[in-house]
Simulated assay, not measured.
Amino acid sequence: MALSRLAGRSLLEFLITLLIGLAPVACGLLVLALQVERKQEETAAVSAAEAIYAIDLVIDTLHSTSNAVLGLAGQRCEQVLPALRQAALRQPSVRSLILIRDNRGYCGTVLGNFDAAFDPGSYFNQRLRLDLQNQITPDMPVLHYRLQEHPVGVIATSDARTLQLELQGFQNGIVLALQFGSDFLWANGSGSVAQVPNYEEDKQRQVSDKYGYVVHAGYPDGHTRQVLRQAIHSTAPLLLLVGILTSAVAYWSLFRQQRQPAP
Rank of each mutant, 00 (worst) to 15 (best):
S122R: 15
L81H: 12
F118I: 11
P120R: 15
S93K: 00
V80A: 08
A54G: 06
A117Q: 00
L132I: 00
G74H: 11
Q135M: 08
E78I: 04
L128F: 05
Y53S: 15
D60W: 01
I55L: 14
T61D: 04
D102S: 12
T65A: 05
D119C: 12
Q126V: 05
L57P: 02
I136D: 15
C77I: 10
L84Q: 15
A51I: 10
A117V: 13
P120T: 11
R104L: 00
R104I: 00
S64C: 03
S96L: 11
N103P: 01
F124M: 09
L72F: 12
Q86M: 10
Q79S: 12
I59Y: 11
D60P: 06
L111N: 09
C77R: 04
I59H: 06
L72Y: 12
D102H: 14
R127P: 03
R104V: 00
R127W: 01
S93Q: 10
I136W: 09
T65H: 08
R85W: 04
A68L: 06
H63S: 08
V110N: 00
D131C: 01
L128A: 07
R90M: 14
D119S: 14
A51P: 04
A48Q: 10
R101Y: 13
D102I: 00
S96H: 05
N103H: 08
I98R: 02
P120M: 12
E78H: 07
L81P: 09
Q79G: 05
N113C: 00
